[in-house]
Every structure is written in C-alpha cells, then in structure tokens.
C-alpha cells in the first residue's frame, strides 16, 4: 500500500476540540456581555437607570418579541427562515379582538388563536418540505396571506373590552420590594424554558441542530428530518400566536397594521443573540439576550429624550452588522483549525 505512514502518534486534537466547544458559546456570551455593558453605561449616564424595574420593564415591553424570537430560533437553527411571524401576530390579534367583540369566551378564543397559529405554521412547513421550496419564499407568501386575512376580518381597529384581557393588561405580579412584572413576562419566560428544554433535552431538539449542521447527513443518520422540519414551522406558528395574544394583552386592541416588520426584529434579535443564519449554531437563551439588547437600545433612546426614536433602528442596524461580522470571524476560525 502506498499511502504514507505517519511517523509520530496521531495528533491529539481533543483538547483543541474542547476549547472550540467552548468557543461555540462565544457569540452568545458576547451578547450577554454587551447587554451588561450597556446597562452599566446607562447607569453611569442617567440617574434612575440602574434599577431592577428598568430591567424588568425591558421584559414587560418585549414579551411578544421574546416569544417570537424563540420560535424564530428553532427555524433558523435548521437553516430556515420564517418571514410570516409579524403578520401571524397581527392575524392572531385580529381574530382574538373580533371573537371577543362577538362575545366569545376568552379561553376559547385563546385556544382557537393558538390552533390557527399552529395550523398556519405547519401548513407552511409542509409546503416547504413536500415541494422542496425555499422557506424564504413560502413564508413570504405566508406573510402576505396572513396580513391580507387581517383586512378580511376588519379594516378598522377593534378595541378589546373583555374583562379577562383587560385584567391581564393591568395585572402586576409583585416581586421583592416594589418590583413587579406582568403576567406576559411569566408566559414569555415559560416559553423560553420550554424551548430550552425541547432543544437540549429531547431528540427532536437535537435533530433541529443536526439538520442545521448538515441536512443530508441527518437524513443518512436516520433522523426524522422531514417531520422535524415541518414541526419547526409549526412551533414558530404557535409562538407567533402566543406573541399575538401577549401583544393583545399589551395593546388591548386588534389592528390590521399592527406588528408590521416585527418578523425582522425577531430575526435581528436571534442573530444578535448569536445564532448562525446558516443553521446549526445558536441558543434560545442567546435569543432572549438578543431581545434584551434590542430593548435596551430603545430604553437608551427614550432616556436621551432629544433623539428621534428612529435612532433605535440605526443602532440596531449597526449592532446587527457588527454581530454578523463577529460570526463570520468565528466561523472562519472554526474552519481554519
């Protein structure tokens, strides 16, 4: 045989591998670090910034975005994308508002909205999987479809007067001291916890990562790839519906133009949170941190007072760019070694 013999013992690369295993967390840790740094800067610049309630308000104001980002994380981990989430949020709000106006039981309404979101997501997942169409295009169609359906329900804004919804809007869950959160925060954090469990403790979750790492490999390894890919969009649909309900709690209305462009905020949060758009790398806790970073940018702008709220967008844009560049560096390093 003419293959060359290696004179020395095979190189033990395991230690490097372990280090690289840790490097996987680098983008996510960077986001957490950024958040802490921004909070510290805010505390130094503005009196009253350094308070538990400012932090909790970040959660309270962004419950729906947290839930959306969670659903989006699943999709992006498989290497896909879901552009429909903003529209599905609006559709969920419209369905809820219209049915509540018609005098439905609020719990029946919530159940129906969740079912609608799940069906919508699963349907898109099926189209993507069965016809092998780009997720981008399928969910773009979903975006238009859901937005259009909102107008079918009502062109006007519908106010929600249901006692359960209004009580949820006003409820304050007291914590230590004068600190409090809204029920929405509890729900959103619960969603994060369930997602974390699904991704790290179930075969379904590991298959999500495997698909992102290499779909054809995952198929050859005998994993349930088609089912997982469809389910991922179903999860994103359910998350959109939950986000819609949380948004309803927050705004007490349904409006066809609500949540426009929210899908982009969700994607931005996921990417800033360290998830690779090509799939396979990322954490749901990173996405939570991503939402908080976007939220704190907004808080900054409002504390500054003199700046137009559009500065939020500019800063988020810059952050997004910075994080994508960071990821590029990260992946290049992995490939080199």
């Amino acid at each position: 045989m003419s293959v060359l013999t290696r004179p020395s013992a095979p190189l033990d690369r395991s230690r490097i591998g372990r280090l690289q295993g840790k490097a996987r967390y680098a983008p996510t840790l960077a986001t957490v670090g950024l958040f802490v740094a921004m909070f510290a800067i805010g505390a130094a610049m503005y009196p009253g910034f350094l308070s538990g309630q400012v932090f909790l308000n970040l959660l309270i104001d962004n419950t729906f975005l947290i839930v959306l980002a969670v659903g989006m994380t699943f999709v992006i981990l498989t290497g896909g994308i879901d552009l429909s989430v903003g529209s599905v949020v609006a559709l969920s709000m419209m369905i809820a508002a219209a049915l509540l106006q018609a005098g439905w039981n609020p719990f029946a309404v919530i159940l129906l909205v969740l079912l609608t979101g799940a069906t919508f997501g699963l349907a898109m997942g099926l189209v993507i999987q069965v016809f092998e169409i780009q997720p981008f295009i399928v969910t773009l169609a979903g975006l238009f479809l859901a937005r259009g359906l909102c107008y079918v329900i009502s062109v006007e804004s519908i106010t929600v007067t249901d006692p359960f919804f209004t009580s949820m809007a006003q409820a304050r869950i007291p914590l230590v001291g004068k600190l409090f959160v809204s029920p929405g925060v509890v729900i959103a954090l619960l969603v994060v916890a369930v997602a974390f469990y699904l991704l790290h403790q179930t075969r379904f979750g590991r298959t999500v990562y495997a698909i992102g790492g290499g779909e054809s490999s995952a198929v050859l390894m005998g994993l349930a790839v088609p089912r997982t890919k469809v389910l991922v969009y179903g999860i994103s649909g359910v998350c959109s519906a939950i986000a819609g309900i949380l948004f309803s709690f927050y705004s007490l209305s349904g409006y066809s133009l609500a949540a426009t462009g929210l899908e982009l905020d969700a994607i931005a949060a996921v990417v800033v949170g360290g998830t690779l758009l090509t799939g396979g790398y990322g954490y749901v806790l990173g996405s939570l941190a991503g939402v908080l970073v976007l939220g704190i940018v907004q808080t900054f702008i409002s504390y500054e007072g003199t700046l137009s709220s559009w500065w939020t967008r500019i800063v988020i844009g810059a952050l997004l760019l910075a994080f994508i560049l960071l990821q590029k560096l990260f992946t290049r390093k992995v490939r080199l070694t």
């Binding site: 295993g21 075969r203 590991r206 298959t207 495997a210 992102g212 790492g213 290499g214 490999s217 995952a218």
Partner: peptide
C-alpha cells in the same frame, strides 16, 4: 455524513440518545 457542529458523543448517539 455526520454533523460537524455537534460533539463527538452526540454524533455517535444522535437519534438514539
């Protein structure tokens, strides 16, 4: 045909954890 983004142990047991 393995997943480069996952650990060695996962690649060995993926789907049969």
């Amino acid at each position: 045909n393995l997943c480069p983004n996952l650990s060695v142990e996962e690649n060995i047991l993926l789907g049969r954890e």
